[in-house]
Nucleic acid binder design. Sequence first.
DNA 1: GATGAATGAGCTTTCATTCAT
DNA 2: AATGAATGAAAGCTCATTCAT
Lengths: 225, 225, 225, 225
Amino acid sequence: MMTSGPFAVEARHQNKSARTRARLMDAAVEVFARDGFEAASVNEIARMAEVANGTFYVHFKDKDAIAANVAARIATDIADQIDRAMEGMDDALDRFGFATRQFIAFASSQPQWGWVIIRAASFLPEMHRQMETHMCADLEMGCRQGQISAEIDAFLVDTITSMVFAALAARLRGDAGPEAGSRVTELVLNMLNIPPQRAHEVAWQDITLKDLHLPTQPKTERLAH
Amino acid sequence: MMTSGPFAVEARHQNKSARTRARLMDAAVEVFARDGFEAASVNEIARMAEVANGTFYVHFKDKDAIAANVAARIATDIADQIDRAMEGMDDALDRFGFATRQFIAFASSQPQWGWVIIRAASFLPEMHRQMETHMCADLEMGCRQGQISAEIDAFLVDTITSMVFAALAARLRGDAGPEAGSRVTELVLNMLNIPPQRAHEVAWQDITLKDLHLPTQPKTERLAH
Amino acid sequence: MMTSGPFAVEARHQNKSARTRARLMDAAVEVFARDGFEAASVNEIARMAEVANGTFYVHFKDKDAIAANVAARIATDIADQIDRAMEGMDDALDRFGFATRQFIAFASSQPQWGWVIIRAASFLPEMHRQMETHMCADLEMGCRQGQISAEIDAFLVDTITSMVFAALAARLRGDAGPEAGSRVTELVLNMLNIPPQRAHEVAWQDITLKDLHLPTQPKTERLAH
Amino acid sequence: MMTSGPFAVEARHQNKSARTRARLMDAAVEVFARDGFEAASVNEIARMAEVANGTFYVHFKDKDAIAANVAARIATDIADQIDRAMEGMDDALDRFGFATRQFIAFASSQPQWGWVIIRAASFLPEMHRQMETHMCADLEMGCRQGQISAEIDAFLVDTITSMVFAALAARLRGDAGPEAGSRVTELVLNMLNIPPQRAHEVAWQDITLKDLHLPTQPKTERLAH
DNA sequence: GATGAATGAGCTTTCATTCAT
DNA sequence: AATGAATGAAAGCTCATTCAT
């Protein structure tokens, strides 16, 4: 019913327990994205993972536990890949623009993950904090570099995060196209009183966005049964 | 268990049916605010309204029906009062600043309503649209007046709405103080490339915010039974 | 929603209470026929009668009470009209054939009544008894006249009744045409060892079946609202 | 509350799931027979089976599902045993007589099953059809053998079925004794214009009716807990 | 570790019935 | 007599969770 998801593929060569756990996490992503956290049922996750419902509880205490795990994994996977892609980038605004655009590109290339991120915003504040931390490191660098004059405090970071999430949501709903990342970047930079030309340049410059690297299915494997 | 809420107080002198309906709506606000729409149960609403569970269905077809009613009432009550308070205000930016600050002041003075508004964002897109329509009328006036150069499109409006909602949420969580309205107003105006001084002035000028006018409990009356 | 039924029309010139009662009975016929006794709800009957649900209990103790009333009325109405139509008929077999054919004709000309009769069979044994009594009077006359040799006992009467009801049901379902009355009459007479020719003649002879006389709507009255 | 019924006894040595399922089916028979299909409630079936209400839904989708299962089992169990008992019987009328008498004997020896059959007539038309098919195969053989001159069509079959069911119902109500099978057989044969003597002989000849073979309780076992 | 039957609390909804107006 | 809001029991069904295998 469900072709192996990223977690399952990654766990392919681990022991059975790890593989089952990975199947459950993939299934959870699928179900959370489709139904939302509240409406998701443990039974449905287990069914989609093609394991018995009792098996769920061997691996996770309850629904919240798997949600936290899934969200943490998604957040770190994406954050790590963004960080790695930005290695060697020095300019704070360039970094911020790149990270924002890359984040939206990643999350909308894997819509289930994207929806989980959006939906997790209300349910898993820790994940939210983690993403904020990542995203505002560059802003603080921007202050130190003298490019940003505004003071970076919690309120501002929260506002920026909500803007980026709104852009992602619009992208996922289909209300915005691939330019969503650039648009929101420019708006944020304007908001920070970066000179409009510079803001525009940073937001729209040609950059090479990476594809989200996910463990993928080797081609010749698996047959549906 | 529950002291009479605004709807119940307002219906005090109407017939019994209207009073029961009002009690249910107050209870629904309470429960939606506390648990969110999805987690809210009809039984819980009835319990909180201190009526039999079957009574709910005398007045509303189902949970969605009461949610729509409640949200519509809250949205129009607040929007109307803001509109009335702005009568005669001509400057588009002043109007936008006032409306934003007043909105956050209202919604955070009645935290349950505030939470319902926040949570309704995802569940009652009509209400969301209605608020956007209201909030962006002034922005378009700003364009016509030549104060705003940016083009007002859906993406921009969506972004602004998410900023205002984020500010309200921060206020409700207690993460921001009464200045939240001014701060988010200034950020939005900066984002629209309004000259910083003007933005600051609009956002922080001394204005008299109204209190949300709700029918309130006469002091000496009634005790819960 | 519901055009006045036979009972209501008949009660047209009585006092209001009687008229309401009649409306309820018409509505009950409608609902019993449509949904069956069990699935019928008092609220639905009241709604169809266009009276408040509480009004039902002014006139009837409960659902069983109205069912009994309705069934009794239908049974006597039909039985009386059959009896009247047979006045002066002397031959027992002719009477039996006529009654059977007329009964099926009546009950299928007013399908709601027909269904109520069928469905009442299990729920209102008294009505069943009453119809049996009526229908077997002629059989006993047939014995006295020497035309029927079989002994008429409860088992036989029950069997005959079930045959007639089965024919009526087939007619109502649309599985049998207008000949259903003749066919079942002939079968019953064969079963009683009446000579086949005589049975055939009795069952298929040309007779004038009456139309069920129901108080009907005067033409020029009533407008839908 | 409930001593194990036939299904449960049969499943005695199967796995737990099968045993629970069997308990539910036995309980359903009990409740359907007592209350009828419509009035029967899933909770009542579960209570009678001494399992939690949720357990019902582990085994059956809903009330209709268990009803269909139960009815199918009863119908095939009885039909198979009748068929087996008639192996080698050649004469169509003898076969019809035997089947009818055996059917009534079986169904009234296990009154719950009998009532379910009667009540299923309206709710499970498939079961009805199945029984008709079985019962009229012999009638058609009778035509081919030249013993029956009447044409066997749907109306006739329906009539015969209703007679047999009426006889069974009378037997179950206690209104008829063990001779019910013979009586209705004779009536049917008369109705088909079989010579009275032959009809009488077929209907009343001495035959050995089998007992319905049901897995039964070994005597010395188990006590309720 | 994995299973999946079993559980029972709790949900939504319907409905017969009562009763103040 | 008529109303219709209010009631609360009871229905069908779901689901997180446990536990023996």
